[in-house]
Write a protein that binds this DNA or RNA. Sequence first.
DNA 1: ACACTAAACTAACACTTGTTAGTTTGTTGC
DNA 2: GCAACAAACTAACAAGTGTTAGTTTAGTGT
Lengths: 189, 189
Amino acid sequence: MKTETRKEEIIKTAATLFKEKGYSAVTMRDLATAMGMKAASLYNHISSKQEILKEIIISLAEEFTEGIEVIYNSNSNSLDKLSQIIALHVKITTNNTSGMASLNNDWMHLEDQLAYYLKLRNNYEAIFLSIIKEGISASEIKNLNPETIMFSMLSTLRSLFLWIPKKEALNANDLANNLSAILIQGINK
Amino acid sequence: MKTETRKEEIIKTAATLFKEKGYSAVTMRDLATAMGMKAASLYNHISSKQEILKEIIISLAEEFTEGIEVIYNSNSNSLDKLSQIIALHVKITTNNTSGMASLNNDWMHLEDQLAYYLKLRNNYEAIFLSIIKEGISASEIKNLNPETIMFSMLSTLRSLFLWIPKKEALNANDLANNLSAILIQGINK
DNA sequence: ACACTAAACTAACACTTGTTAGTTTGTTGC
DNA sequence: GCAACAAACTAACAAGTGTTAGTTTAGTGT
């Protein structure tokens, strides 16, 4: 329980491979080669391929859940809360780009934990939607379809893992600020 | 060369399976079962699993290329061109939701056609970026980072395949108009 | 009736998959 | 020097993979 570092290395390596080819296309032999060992040796550290995916996805999903609940319960106004959500996505994605790829593309290959993951995701979206609706009621946000607003924002935020690695020039703060400007104020001059 | 309808049925069925589980996780036996036949029988109509993926993705990529070139060469102003790009995505995605899932998630499993696909995609993004830059030069668009603007819009448009099937209530025109409003004018009241 | 053809079938192939069992290696604490 | 242990190894497995070869079936035009 102390030196779990080898297991974590495997999970991290797996995440980068999953990002490139997807969970199903990565074999245990691919992963072993990337780790410089034989496939069977992986099983000294992990119990199955499934477990790796679970470790990657569930911890991230829980991180998002905790993050948005704090934001929701703060006493900022709605537009500020949306900016904080943007910053949350930028931060988590910056810290674990590869894991975010699995979260977005391979969640359907969770087996035992699929129901739990979907529960977390539905909960997250429900809170996000509440914030938007409250913003509309408070006349902070334009009276447009709330689901479409959420879809648009969430699409951009969920794609950050594709974008951030190419632009390490931008630091996390600048990116979050840029995105807030675009997503909230629009681009029309 | 006349009745290619059986091949097209296979490709369409494959696309819906690829959308749910991804290209790598769908076996030829899965596809055959969905078609009500045995796996070997598929090969009377298609030459390989690869070919199916190619047919799905390349035709869509070419459709986007043709579409954006027409828009780019029209004499609308830049904001109108962006609205037309939004409408292009909504239209193509509405007509082939499953195929768009493969285009977005499984392009890396193209083998022989991977280079060609990447060429088309880079060309598409270059034109998109030109339109944004021209809009900034013409003072139609705010002077924000053009790449970030494109990334934000494209993320939303590329995720439409996830969204459109859930909202068949909205027709294509309404959705395109809603999205144009949000992406261009912002949500801040 | 007969040849043709589209489209299904059965059987099998060579290879790859995730995983297990049992063994060897190298380091650490006594 | 030896016990203990983490972490690698070899060898093998049963099941599943995409694909091929050859055959059967049923419908169509002559």
